[in-house]
């Protein structure tokens, strides 16, 4: 065993707790030494603590600087604010890293997709500045700042360089939103000059959507403002197998939270039938972030093998296994290979 890591586990709500237990089972069996500290988040906290994000949870994440999070529910239209957005704001997790990579055993109409999305996570229309400016007009301020745009571009180029990526495109609508998206694009271009070894360019968001569904293999890394990033990262997830296999990381300068990007599926809560793969692949991302490459590789290989065999997979990929049985099959596969 190497270094012991202390990770805050946020099981979330709905199916979150059962998914996170399955993921913990797999990660603990991978050989990595993690002390898990469980904390609460989400709507279930409201009755108990009067908030979606209790102070104790914030303090634990601030102390450990790394967390793995299950799904939480975001109310639509009215009600309480999103626990996810609050977390991003509190810890200034400005980079949402969303890889979209084909899982070999899941049949898709594409030969190759390996897109790394860098979504700006704190600005744009997500600044929570909305007003009913008259009784029939609502307005949302789209806030784009130079340092906010510059740092996500800098983060993306640094990540790309460290991971051998070759090409980064900035996705925007600066032909229409010349000030806001124009500023985002200007910052990207300024940063790109510092990385001459990485090919850079830009693409208008609507054209990017069309190109993604026609020929996704042409893309390597994308840098996007918050709203386009929210939408296009799900589009990319759909290209590679859906949200059930989509990992995500929210990263700031001093803290990183890894999470599934799908919802909490409350109607399936307690049934132990949902696929825990999205949280698991987020956990794999977390292990790589912690420099635990061997454990990450071990889990990835075992998960692919279990998916390939199709004997112990969940209903969404054509099987009948429970969440726990799928996780246990991955653990067994890791032991087989050891």
């Amino acid at each position: 065993m190497g270094t012991q890591h202390v990770v805050t586990m946020l099981p979330g709500e709905g199916t979150g707790p059962e998914i996170c237990e399955a993921v913990r089972l797999v990660i603990d069996a991978s050989g990595v030494d993690i002390k898990w500290e469980y904390e609460e988040i989400g709507l279930d906290c409201l009755d108990k603590h009067g908030t979606l994000l209790p102070d104790k949870t914030v303090q634990a994440i601030a102390r450990n600087k790394i967390a793995l999070k299950g799904p939480t529910t975001t109310p639509v239209g009215t009600g309480h604010k999103s626990a996810n957005v609050t977390l991003r704001k509190v810890f200034d997790l400005y980079a949402n890293v969303r890889p979209a990579k084909l899982i070999p055993v899941l049949k898709r109409p594409w030969d190759k997709i390996d897109i790394l999305n860098f979504r700006e996570n704190t600005e744009d229309c997500y600044a929570a500045i909305e007003h009913m400016v008259s009784d029939e007009v609502a307005q949302c301020l789209k806030v784009i700042t130079w340092p906010g745009s510059y740092r996500i571009a800098e983060f993306a180029f640094k990540w790309a360089k460290a991971n051998g990526r070759k090409k980064i495109y900035c996705v925007h609508k600066a032909n229409i939103m010349k000030m806001t998206d124009g500023l985002f694009l200007d910052a990207f271009r300024e940063v790109a000059k510092k990385y001459p070894d990485i090919e850079s360019g830009d693409i208008i968001v609507d054209n990017c959507c069309m190109q993604l569904v026609r020929n996704p293999a042409q893309f390597d890394c994308l840098v996007l403002p918050n709203l386009y990033g929210d939408i296009l990262t799900d589009l990319c997830a759909g290209l590679v197998g859906g949200l059930g296999f989509a990992p995500g990381a929210n990263v700031g300068d001093n803290c990183a939270i890894f999470e599934a990007v799908h919802g909490s599926a409350p109607k399936y809560a307690g049934l132990k039938k949902v696929n825990p793969s999205a949280v698991l692949v987020s956990g794999i991302m977390m292990l790589r972030w912690m420099k635990e490459e061997a454990a990450a590789d071990r889990i990835t290989k075992a998960m692919f093998a279990v998916l390939e065999e199709r004997k112990h997979v969940t209903y969404d990929v054509g099987g009948t296994a429970t969440t726990d049985e799928y996780a246990q099959a991955i653990v067994d596969k890791m032991h087989e290979k050891a």
Binding site: K89, V90, D92, Y94, T122, E123, Y126, I129, G148, N254
Partner: peptide, 18 residues
């Protein structure tokens, strides 16, 4: 600032403010 509450209450020293 940039949509994140900076007063009253705790504000992270790392928070980007414009």
């Amino acid at each position: 600032n940039r949509g994140t509450k900076v007063w009253p209450g705790f504000v992270s020293p790392d928070l980007l403010q414009v």
